[in-house]
Design a protein around this nucleic acid. Structure first.
Length: 351
DNA sequence: TATTCGTGGTA
DNA sequence: TTACCAAGAAT
């Protein structure tokens, strides 16, 4: 990269300054080894953490990572588990294709061992450009160019990329590659994460504490708050449907296993109608003794779900369904439906 | 390239 | 309250 005209220095020394900062300010996280450590972290732990962290906050992942690892300490343990158990353990984390791919990946790795290159990792299910690079850098000490949302934001600011980052992928990659050092690739990648999370934040970046401010074109131009440029998202449509909470006398709830792909694919769910846009049909109850107990509104990435919840006391389960008293394996939206029905039942039971 | 995949926290 | 968004992948 050339020295930006009239904007101070080039980027030589960026990685060194960032790593010096990381040595003193690295977050302590359960899947990490301390900065500068000679030991390489367990690829299994690195991979699991990276998959869990996809579009998911550190605060959410931390306890779930610990619990998951306690249940399946090695990749072979995970590979040997039934898929339903893995999906159940993932419940509440969202993006459930991650759990299906995680299990598929574990089976491959248990059989063949971990690939020793970024390219090899990229061929595994659930490892895209980012995750393959991150695991290669952190677990294999390979000089991989790691680009996640943090790196994208930092690079957009360091080079003052004013085009929408969505369309400036090549420019972001070139910038990230130019900054990435050959030494300490794992520490460098994680340092970029920590910088993005704690200093070079999306809003109100803390430039006064930034170890790489001398290299930052956006700071030099007063553009940090404006970058990166993102295209505004379209408004989310509403999908409506009916969910049925069938309760047995002992309290167990009627469930069914959902289709392998699509929304909540492979997960445990409650019986329900289709969820359609515009179809505000309150949906006639499947039987006369199903009573309406209210509505659950649940926001997803690309639409908003408005679910009418109906409940009834049942004696036996229709084919394809079964009762369970353990709701921990249900995605959040279904747990919310059960919770609403429970409130209704409690109100009715109290004479 | 654009869409489909969840959820919870924050301003 | 809405809007944003957090260590993205698959198609």
């Amino acid at each position: 990269m050339s020295v930006a005209g009239g904007e101070g220095r080039g980027k030589d020394g960026f990685a060194s300054a960032l790593l010096d900062w990381y040595d003193d300010h690295a977050r302590i996280l359960p899947w990490r080894v301390p900065p500068g450590s000679d030991e390489r972290p367990d690829p299994y732990r690195v991979w699991l953490s990276e998959v869990m962290l996809q579009q998911t906050t550190v605060a959410t992942v931390r306890p779930r990572f610990e619990r998951f690892l306690e249940r399946w300490p090695t990749v072979s343990d995970l590979a040997a588990a039934p898929q339903e158990d893995v999906l159940s353990e993932w419940a509440g984390l969202g993006y459930y294709a991650r759990a299906r791919n995680l299990h598929a990946c574990a089976k491959v790795v248990a059989e063949q061992g971990w690939p020793q290159t970024e390219e090899g990792l990229r061929a595994l299910p659930g490892l895209g450009t980012y995750t393959a690079a991150a695991v290669a850098a952190i677990a294999l000490a390979e000089r991989a160019v790691v680009i996640d949302g943090n790196v994208e934001r930092v690079v957009a600011r360091i080079f003052a990329i004013e085009r929408p980052v969505r369309q400036a992928g090549a420019e972001v990659r070139a910038g990230a590659a130019a900054l990435t050092p050959a030494a300490r690739p794992g520490d460098y990648a994680q340092a970029m994460m920590d910088l993005g999370a704690g200093v070079c934040r999306p809003k109100r970046p803390d430039c006064l504490l930034c170890p790489v401010r001398p290299f930052c074109d956006a700071a030099a131009r007063g553009l940090t708050e404006e970058l990166p440029v993102r295209v505004p998202k379209k408004p989310r449509p509403v999908r409506s449907g009916v969910v049925y909470v069938g309760v047995r006398p002992d309290g167990a709830v009627l469930c069914e296993r959902r289709a392998e792909n699509g929304l909540y694919g492979g997960m445990l769910g409650l019986p329900s109608s289709d969820w359609k846009e515009g179809g505000a049909d309150a949906g006639a109850p499947v039987a006369s003794d199903w009573v309406n107990v209210g509505e659950v509104e649940h926001g997803l990435t690309h639409f908003i779900l408005k679910l009418t919840v109906q409940t009834a006391r049942l004696g036996d389960a229709p084919s394809g369904t079964f009762f369970t008293d353990d709701l921990s394996g249900l995605p959040t939206v279904f747990r919310r439906c059960v919770a609403l029905a429970s409130v209704h039942a409690a109100a009715n039971d109290a004479p």
